[in-house]
Design a protein around this nucleic acid. Structure first.
Lengths: 209, 209
DNA sequence: ATATACTTACTTACCGTAAAGTAAGGAAAG
DNA sequence: CTTTCCTTACTTTACGGTAAGTAAGTATAT
């Protein structure tokens, strides 16, 4: 009898934390989905917070690694920014629960982020700021406030993923209201990150007349 | 003594719903902050959902009105888009709880949005899509997917407001990690919406060479 | 080889707390 | 003296967490 139950718990926990956020996810439901009882969770994890930490931190770490590697594969700052955005998008597309967990954490002002989680998150967020600074220093980028660009990249990517079904509901509502406005097709995550990368670069590229 | 307690309840509720989201806001705490007891809430509102609805819907309605009026004050599509973004930003700046409530709702996929709330939200979100379409039809804008632009505008504005303190924490963390990187000043909401409007217009404006 | 001791990986049954919601009654205003 | 507005005291439910027990396997001693 191997410890595959622990993996099952982690998988179920990711789904529930993504759907309801930390506080509203129920350990009983997580246990049920994992095919165990609640105390089995306490056998593997100290408490609810430790389970959450385990689920979230592993992903934050992998994200920071993935984005870091993607960026390092290029030399030119423009390519690096493009790689950042696209690899961020690819990661979110591949780990669907993760964007929702981050979204809850953002809404909660990081209430449940441990120091370790904060550190991993800052690895990812700090990188784009450094990239932009680098570009500005080299005279390739021109920008008023790098913070704004960071926000545009990160929140667009994350919200696109998490608000998918809500947007559909709102769009349906709007179509009904205005009568016969066609629902338009939505770009998937990889399309989005490509479009976004192009647009962001257009925004920050220094124009040389 | 007229029903000023009801107003107090609504104010306290807005703060708590903004901080913790619908499910995690406690009626007991709301009542305490409003200077009444919990059953007083039940005297004025049918249940928790009705209180939430009342808090959220009034703001969604006012937002849709404010943005609609700001847009109608202009003729040219470019000015209209600018007015949209800046009035949206101004509204968020003036109603600080509101962005956080929306943020929670986004993270929750609109789980607690009533039909009425969804309708009000779609008034605001649908408007920007129509503006962009209009611009494209008139040959002023050029764009691959209006959805992406909508996301960039709305999620940037909302997340900027709600993640303020989290960003500070992350930035502090990053500064410590890298040693001596200066914390940069953050734009306030009105600066942000002005910068954002300029950038978004730059993005979607059709270039005529 | 087999009995003993111990560990792993759980389960059943329970506790304390906090939350939504309610029943019943009281003060104050007209 | 009735309506409005609120309180005290309660019920119910769901949750995080725990105490205690147990089946199955492993290591050790004889």
């Amino acid at each position: 009898m191997k410890g595959n139950k622990k993996e099952k718990i982690l998988e179920a926990a990711a789904i529930h934390f993504a759907r309801r956020g930390y506080a509203n996810a129920s350990l009983e439901e997580i246990a049920a989905d994992a095919g165990v009882t609640k105390p089995a969770i306490y056998y593997h994890f100290k408490d609810k917070a430790a389970l959450y930490e385990s689920v979230l931190c592993s992903r934050l770490e992998r994200l920071a690694d993935a984005v870091g590697q993607a960026v390092e594969a290029h030399e030119a700052v423009e390519k690096r920014v493009k790689a950042y955005i696209e690899s961020f998008g690819a990661f979110l597309a591949a780990h669907r629960c993760f964007a929702a967990m981050l979204s809850h954490e953002f809404a909660d002002n990081g209430r449940n982020l441990s120091d370790d989680a904060t550190r991993q998150l800052s690895r990812t967020l700090g990188l784009v700021t450094r990239l932009i600074d680098e570009g500005v220093k080299r005279g390739v980028f021109e920008i008023e406030n790098p913070m704004v660009v960071q926000m545009m990249i990160v929140s667009t990517l994350i919200n696109h993923q998490t608000t998918r079904t809500l947007r559909k509901r709102v769009a349906t509502q709007a179509a009904k209201e205005l009568g016969g406005v066609a629902l338009r097709p939505e770009p998937d995550m990889n399309d989005l990150s490509k479009i976004l990368a192009k647009k962001i670069l257009k925004l920050i590229r220094k124009e040389r007349p």
